[in-house]
Design a protein around this nucleic acid. Sequence first.
DNA 1: TGGTGACTCAGTCGGGCGTCCAAGTCAGGG
DNA 2: CCCTGACTTGGACGCCCGACTGAGTCACCA
Lengths: 203, 203
Amino acid sequence: MPRISAEERRADFVKAAVEVIATHGIDGATTRRIAEQANAPLATLHYCYNSKEDLFADVYQFVADKFRGVITSNDPHAELETTAHQILRGVMECYLESVNFAATSLELTSWARRQHKEGGVILVYDTALDAVRTALRSASAEHPLEPETVDEIVYVIATLADGFALNWLTYGDRSAAEKQMQISTSVLDSWLATRLEAVPVAP
Amino acid sequence: MPRISAEERRADFVKAAVEVIATHGIDGATTRRIAEQANAPLATLHYCYNSKEDLFADVYQFVADKFRGVITSNDPHAELETTAHQILRGVMECYLESVNFAATSLELTSWARRQHKEGGVILVYDTALDAVRTALRSASAEHPLEPETVDEIVYVIATLADGFALNWLTYGDRSAAEKQMQISTSVLDSWLATRLEAVPVAP
DNA sequence: TGGTGACTCAGTCGGGCGTCCAAGTCAGGG
DNA sequence: CCCTGACTTGGACGCCCGACTGAGTCACCA
């Protein structure tokens, strides 16, 4: 009813798409359902987007941007351990805050895997990992680590975040998830402590 | 062509269904595709199963049984740390051995989440966690731990296994995955060491 | 040799999908 | 004040593909 610009409408559709994907999966995310979720007639969707594919491209962008934002929003002058800790906590808090975002991320990576077309939507996952890698490198700038060591840390952070997400999505128990955030971060901390013992810093 | 019992045929269809679900997702797992994967005419599928739903029930059973088998197939007389370590390694090896099994497990839990109908297919995940819990309890029988502590360990094992699976499924890089198995188990070990320090055994 | 269980072919029927059109409706500038 | 162009909308189109079936064929065993 209210007349708003096509640009704002597009944002509505992207948000609606995220919710529909979370609830019905990628294959269940039809143009009709997305339009309904956005409280807009179906035809409006095709007035704003030439095709469903165009809309989905915006969704990928949205998800990737959100990840980038969460990961890069920590203190750049902190120690390596602190940075790693903050990134993991930030991502988990983000999942906890928006189940739909977490679910949609999972659906997207799951869907990306099925299309063995390389260079496609797997970029969402890739950009997130790259952001973590960059943050860790700059945090350890004064006492540079082996690239392999950085990659190990990136992997552990990703693993703990993904594992947390899967559990939280499966059971949807918020208070349990909050305790699990504590556990996950403590796992990271204790591993980092023993792992970095073996790599003395250069003088 | 060769005439085999309907029971054996059913096993073929279940195996085919696992592969199709892994490749096309739950929604893409149509009776046509499953029959084709099993090298059988579509009508044969409906001869063996009254409905698609019946076939899928067998698939859930198959997946749950495989998990149970992998988890409970370790030395029951080992220490707690060893048992935890073995379970994690066993599950990851199982994923590494069969990408399709790993992918199907993920698709199933992901699909189960969407049906917020309680008491349905989430049992696959539940039975697996229960099996881990039971194994840990019996491993720590001589020096019983608090139930909360056991649950923490179960969570960490699940998280590390799930995170490993997601990464392996996303990138499909076998040699990277083998290294990541090492890392994951070392994460578990170092966390368990510091975690159990705080809980001295009863005399 | 007849019967039964195992299998197959060639459909039926129906629903839902993405897309598009033609007819509105409004806001603001000339 | 009305006209133009950005927006909105109901409804239709065409089509693909889903689960499922009925009637028939084949292989084997008693």
